[in-house]
Design a protein around this nucleic acid. Structure first.
Length: 643
RNA sequence: GCCGGCGUAGCACAAUUGGUAGUGCAACGGUUUUGUAAACCGUAGGUUGGGGGUUCGAGUCCCUCCGCCGGCACCA
């Protein structure tokens, strides 16, 4: 006689053990129809699950986050069923839920074509419409292995063989199709109405590059058509913001076949933005107590032997070049160079902490398939710095770094962060004590800064714990740029020392940190974040002066000179074109302010100001415009004449 | 690196079963002197990513290399 307590606190009694589906019926016919699964005492179950004892029960529908996941998971099964019906002999493997959808990996010799996808989608719709009941069976492990082996599903058999011994082997069936699955699943295929297959791709079996490659079909599924539409709109929005597209349209940068993959060419307008970023970066670092360094781009390979890079980083390094019977190595990192500077002399505890920064250009031979616009390149400039300090200074230094990090990121319009703290992995250098001490220091700094963070236990590098900061951009995507890493390894390898107050020699702690990550990558993210509509302080051209007829040519020159003399980035467009044409062009180029000049303005020493949003700010004296723009620049985008 | 797709003028794209490589924008020249998102006329622009092959004939089919795109793997 189970008593069922619902989420709203109300209770219902049943005379006999009752299925989740029947609880839903008992509550109401609408809910019964929408029920996808149940949560019984915190555990997700099928609607066919029978409740025998008193329990807390919730009916899960597509409106619940769990319900949506179940919906997607069941749609993955629907996909697998459709594929096997259309392409007999195709083996199934796994089909999990991912963000916004699902995928299913298949083993088949022939590749799936886009036409195949359309056919599969159609088949899926047919099966869904057939309203097949989805039922769960519990099988004996050996029977299950035998069954899947017999029908030629060697991947499924392998999965079952590797399941923990106490795991219940459940098999879900719909129509005459069956798949091993933990579940839960929707009660019938009729719930699977709104889905779309999005792409085919290769993927390694069990995510291991030494295994065979399977074919992965990606799809998305939603509770209703409106959500699907919103999702597709979101994808379009992301595409509109693609930095590769905008970089070309605004003539900011290029990657060229003639030069090789992953090597970035900064065009004049992109270079202007980079200069603003770098100038700001240097200024802020000097203010934060950093010294700035310059170091070479190549060094003897023996240096990289000392650092250990030729050993564990060889894959990513460009091949060495030989000169005078010695091997030189293009640098993949800046750290050893900063250490060499440190070692030019005996350091005292009075020197610490040393904060040394460099916009250091490094080259890494990333695998060809990894390259992606500005986000993954082979030559890039890290906004790198290394801090050498004593153990006691770690926490204070981390706190300073976090302050500077957040300030920098906020200056570029990012206000939403996700922080990760990664601790000691299995394989690590350094004593447990130092790891513990250092990790405590990181934790302390995070607490002092009042930052919430997620703990990635065992996720640290082998040489020390780290803090990563992810930023969320204008459309909610997360990017990891900033990283702060402690290093117990390199000081050891380079035998770094300082003389402490006690007269003894001690090993300094090394902190690696990058705030923007790499200038290239950060620029790419920045382009997408602002959709190319950079705030005026970053905009390559802050204002364009447009004449209406040739009569204003001289006046345009005066205005331009006046604004330029104030350090503003302005251009004149004196072309023999209609004003509408010029406005269109510079608006598309995302120039923040268009200064229109006709006879009226020339006579009154004014400019008619139009924003890139199409807003008319009216005519104003040139000096007033200059003053307002100056104020806007000083605020670094926090205030604007726009809007 | 792996799986699949793609590569045509500066850019966006077109070209029947293999049969004369086009259109728009941009560029250049001219006309027009214009008031807030595209004036008009004309000119020029290509070894169809590179190399090889099949064919009477290849942008189109095959091989190979390079690059790009979507994933996977990688991302100290």
């Amino acid at each position: 006689m189970p008593n069922v307590t619902l989420p709203d606190g109300s209770a219902r009694s049943f005379a006999d053990p009752v299925a989740v589906a029947d609880v839903a019926v008992d509550i109401g016919p609408g809910l019964a129809k929408a029920a996808l699964a149940g949560r019984v005492d915190g555990r997700l179950v099928d609607t066919s699950f029978v409740i025998a004892d008193d329990a807390e029960v919730a009916i899960i529908t597509a409106r619940d986050a769990e319900g949506l996941e179940i919906l997607r998971h069941s749609t993955a099964h629907l996909l697998a069923q459709a594929v096997q019906e259309l392409f007999p002999g195709t083996q199934v493997t796994i089909g999990p839920v991912i963000e916004d959808g699902f995928y299913y990996d298949f083993a088949r010799d022939e590749p799936f074509t886009p036409e195949d996808l359309a056919a599969i989608e159609k088949k899926m719709a047919e099966i869904a419409a057939a309203d097949l009941a989805v039922h769960r069976e519990v099988w004996d492990r050996d029977d299950a292995i035998r069954h899947f082996s017999d029908i030629g599903e060697k991947y499924k058999a392998e999965i079952i063989r590797d399941l923990p011994a106490d795991e219940v082997i459940s098999v879900y069936g719909q129509g005459d199709w069956k798949d091993l699955c933990r579940g839960p699943h929707v009660p019938s295929t009729r719930h699977l109405k709104v889905f779309k297959l999005t792409k085919v791709a290769g993927a390694y079996w069990r995510g291991d590059a030494s295994n065979e490659m399977l074919q992965r079909i990606y799809g998305t599924a939603w509770p209703d058509k409106k959500s699907l539409k919103q999702y597709l709109r979101r994808l379009e929005e992301a595409e509109r913001r693609d930095h590769r597209r905008i970089g070309k349209d605004l003539d900011l940068f290029s990657l060229q076949e003639d030069a090789g993959g992953g090597l970035v060419f900064w065009h004049p307008k992109g270079a202007r933005i980079r200069r603003v970023i770098e100038d700001f970066w240097r200024e802020q670092h000097v203010a934060a107590g950093y010294e700035l360094l310059y170091t070479p781009h190549i060094a003897l390979q023996t240096l990289w032997d000392t650092s250990g890079h030729t050993d564990f980083y060889r894959e990513s390094m460009y091949r060495p070049m030989e000169e005078d019977n010695q091997l030189y190595q293009l640098k993949p990192m800046n750290c050893p160079f900063h250490i060499l500077i440190y070692k030019q002399g005996l350091r005292s505890y009075r020197d610490l902490p040393l904060r040394w920064g460099e916009l250091g250009t490094v080259y890494r031979h990333e695998m060809s398939g990894a390259l992606h616009g500005l986000l993954r390149v082979r030559g890039f400039t890290q906004d790198d710095a290394h801090i050498f300090c004593s153990e006691e200074q770690i926490e204070a230094e981390i706190l300073r770094i976090l302050d500077l990090t957040l300030f920098m990121l906020e200056s570029f319009g990012f206000n939403d962060f996700a922080v990760n703290l990664s601790t000691k992995p299995e394989k690590a250098v350094g004593s447990d004590e130092i790891w513990e001490k250092a990790t405590d220091a990181l934790r302390g700094a995070l607490a002092a800064k009042g930052l919430d963070y997620e703990l990635d236990a065992g996720g640290g590098a082998f040489y020390g714990p780290k803090i990563d900061v992810k930023i969320r951009d204008a459309i909610g995507r997360e990017w990891q740029c900033s990283t702060v890493q402690l290093d117990f390894n390199l000081p050891e390898r380079f035998d770094m020392e300082y003389v402490a107050a006690d007269g003894e020699r001690h090993r300094p702690i090394m902190i690696h940190r990058a705030l923007l990550g790499s200038i290239e990558r950060f620029f790419g993210i920045l382009i997408e974040h602002y959709e190319g509509r950079f705030p005026a302080w970053l905009a390559p051209v802050q204002a364009v002066i447009l004449n209406i007829t040739d009569r204003q040519e001289a006046y345009v020159g005066e205005v331009k000179e006046l604004l330029e003399n104030q350090g503003l980035r302005v251009e004149a467009d004196l072309r023999n074109e209609k004003i509408g044409f010029k406005i269109r062009e510079h608006t598309l180029q995302r120039v923040p302010y268009l200064l229109v000049v006709g006879d009226r303005e020339a006579e009154s020493n004014t400019v008619a100001v139009r924003t890139r949003d199409g807003q008319d700010l009216g005519s104003m004296p040139v000096k007033e415009f200059a003053a307002r723009l100056e104020a806007e620049l000083a605020s670094r985008g926090r205030t604007s004449m726009e809007e």
